[in-house]
Design a protein around this nucleic acid. Structure first.
Lengths: 262, 262
DNA sequence: GCTGCTGCAG
DNA sequence: CTGCAGCAGC
């Protein structure tokens, strides 16, 4: 089974890229999309259904939005933190559509778009940390019911120095600050491990390159899109890789797909 | 000597089209641009200067804006009505940057972007008529000092029925209403004649096609961009034509160049 | 409708 | 550098 994660930065603008990629990657069973940037009524379901995929969406206008594109029908589809956490815990966090999950062949696939956080100390940064605190509760509760969990998506955090093209300003940069790293590392202690690092020790592998400053051409990237697996799945994992080809296309997303196989 | 008029609908968005067109039309001495939509500090002068043109600009943020692009340096450059009319007459009309003129080889080239007027009876329509009243004074005063005057630009008025693709709703449509036509015709009585009509009697020649309803493909156009010449220049005129090629490009302006030669 | 701009977000 | 909303113009 293969699961892919791809922040497409607007599913409508990137529709051709995404359907082309699915055609080129017929072994991918579930494609997890982030930043679809579209309300559910306007999501282009037909192009995927015509390729015999099932589509599960949780979107909003202009920002955020997540989706699951699957060859087989999915079970137990859940949208938002509120699906399993009480309202008091969730608060307003589900106003932004960042969480969708479902089960395929006994594996819960959990697709996330973690807040970016803007800059250290900003209001959006506080939101990111608050969101991650609730995420931990959400994942803990999920792990109470399943031993096969694949948490993937755009985490907007690069855990290790080798996951970033440079060491400059690292500690003060959003996505690599000590607090963010510690927060994510702490979440993973509940029983999740990075599928990519099971197979690849080297740095220089990235999943996101800023649109600015020609950073893709200069390979000034970050590895911020991840597949985190529960122990049982981690054991079963046979591959995890980044496909940089879509980032080379005309008008690409700034992210590129990350695929795990188990 | 050749003078061209082109409403480019954003000189920054159309920069490639404009420089390409200049390269393809090396005999054009002065290119008059309208709707440059950029403040003077942000006008892309360098690409024109690298092609050895001189650039004279009178712009504002987001709306309107006119410019003169010239192979030779221009003399007596004037911006706005206020350059020769008293402030009492001009009022607030120079808040919108719609008038620039200069002299080349004894010919005053006067580049206009006449207000569109939105719809008959609207506030913008009243502004258009008020603007045209002041234009008449401005042109009269200009004709007191020169016998060689080339007034060109986007007039947002089609003087004759054959200058529009259809007769439908003509009288109630902005750009072809009787009042607008009479107002422009009255202005021309001070001593200006349509260079295009010296050479071409037929209808079906247009300079503007709405972006909507595939109107260019269906040739649903209007001839609203003009060169009006003082008698001496009109006598000397050897050609006047519309180049529809730029309207066929990707992401074109809705207008296309009109060129006069004398 | 179709485009361009501002302003925001990433 | 890109996408979107909201606006304005035509």
């Amino acid at each position: 089974m293969q699961v892919a994660s791809w922040n497409v930065n607007s599913v409508r603008t990137r529709l051709g890229h995404v359907t082309d990629w699915l055609k080129d990657n017929p072994d991918v069973d579930v494609l997890c999309l982030q930043e679809t940037k579209v309300v559910d009524t306007d999501f282009p379901k037909a192009p995927f259904e015509e390729l015999d995929y099932h589509v599960y969406i949780y979107g909003q206008k202009a920002y955020n939005g997540v989706a699951l594109i699957s060859k087989a029908p999915l079970e137990e589809v859940r949208m938002g933190f509120g699906a399993i956490l009480d309202q008091e815990t969730v608060g307003d966090l589900d106003d932004q559509k960042r969480v969708i999950s479902a089960v395929l062949d006994g594996v819960r696939i959990l697709n996330l778009y973690v807040p970016n956080g803007s800059s250290i100390g900003s209001e959006k940064y506080a939101y990111k940390l608050r969101w991650l605190a609730v995420l931990k509760q959400y994942l803990s509760k999920t792990l109470e019911e399943t031993t096969k969990l694949n948490v993937c998506g755009d985490f907007n955090i690069a855990l290790e120095n080798k996951d970033i093209y440079t060491d400059e300003k690292r500690d003060k940069h959003i996505m690599s600050s000590p607090t963010e790293r510690e927060t994510l590392a702490e979440i993973l202690t509940i029983g999740l491990a990075d599928a990519f690092r099971k197979f690849t020790d080297a740095g220089g592998h990235f999943s996101w390159w800023d649109y600015r400053a020609a950073s893709f051409r200069r390979n000034m990237g970050w590895r911020i899109d991840h597949h985190y697996l529960s122990p049982e799945l981690y054991e079963q994992a046979t591959r995890c890789w980044i496909d940089i080809e879509p980032r080379k296309l005309e008008k690409p997303s700034d992210h590129t797909p990350v695929i795990v196989e188990y």
